[in-house]
Simulated assay, not measured.
Amino acid sequence: MLKQLRPALVMIVIFTAITGLAYPLAMTGISGMLFPKQAEGSLIVENGTVIGSELIGQNFASEKYFHGRPSVTLGPDPADPSKSVVVPYNAANSMGSNLGPANPALIERVKTDLEKLKAENPGQPVPIDLVTTTGSGLDPDISPEGALFQLPRVAKARGVPEDKLRDLVSDLTQAPILGILGEPRVNVLALNRALDAMAK
């Protein structure tokens, strides 16, 4: 019996070393050399401090900033750690809400967000990405329409002409990859950083 088990155990050890250690370490090293910024998480550093990532959205609540898509990622409830509460853009718990389209809680959340946005910019159609979440809950981008919808609020809060902000959104709009993959998009953190830089 040992004669049959020995080759199997040797193969397990060899393939574990190759596929579990050598290959991941080699790929990590190669990606670090070829794409150092991406391999480290596409971090954005300002004055020596990491302020975010190009790949993970942040929760901007102030009227002076453009807001991203809704995020329903969860985190521990500060009042009761055995329970979970919504913690927007919690990168440690990337997930969608898992609520089906007929779920009353989802319908109520979308309705509430929709009414709030309609009050913010009356008479304008609300872009779908401002009331729907993504599968990860961490999407850092919004559509150009989503950014333009928020122009009046941001312009009023900052005392900046809407045309100036419209140009900023246009400058920061990224085209689909290779012209065909995906949709035009605007990175919310990059847009808000440009806003702050404009105010200096």
Rank of each mutant, 00 (worst) to 15 (best):
L2E: 02
L2F: 14
K3D: 06
A8D: 03
V10T: 15
I12Y: 10
V13R: 07
I14D: 01
I18N: 11
T19I: 14
T19G: 13
G20I: 13
A22F: 11
Y23C: 04
P24A: 08
A26N: 10
I30G: 05
G32R: 09
L34I: 01
F35S: 03
F35I: 03
F35L: 08
Q38G: 01
E40R: 06
G41E: 01
G48A: 13
I51G: 06
I51F: 03
G52R: 04
G52K: 00
L55K: 02
Q58D: 06
N59D: 12
E63Y: 11
F66W: 01
H67M: 02
G68C: 10
R69A: 08
V72F: 15
L74V: 13
L74M: 14
A79I: 03
V85R: 05
V85L: 00
V86A: 13
V87D: 05
P88T: 11
P88F: 04
A91F: 02
A91G: 02
M95C: 05
M95Q: 10
M95L: 00
G96M: 02
S97N: 12
L99N: 00
L99V: 08
A102P: 00
N103D: 15
V110C: 03
D113I: 04
D113H: 09
D113R: 15
L114A: 11
L117K: 14
A119C: 08
P122D: 11
G123A: 09
V126K: 08
P127E: 10
L130W: 07
T133R: 01
S143K: 12
S143T: 15
L148Y: 15
Q150R: 09
R153D: 04
V154A: 09
K156G: 05
D163A: 14
R166G: 05
D167C: 06
D167A: 15
L168Q: 04
S170K: 15
P176N: 09
I177H: 08
L178F: 10
G179D: 07
L181S: 10
L181K: 05
L181T: 07
G182S: 13
E183C: 02
E183S: 12
P184H: 06
R185V: 05
R185A: 09
V186C: 07
N187I: 05
V188C: 03
L191A: 01
R193L: 14
A194L: 09
L195P: 00
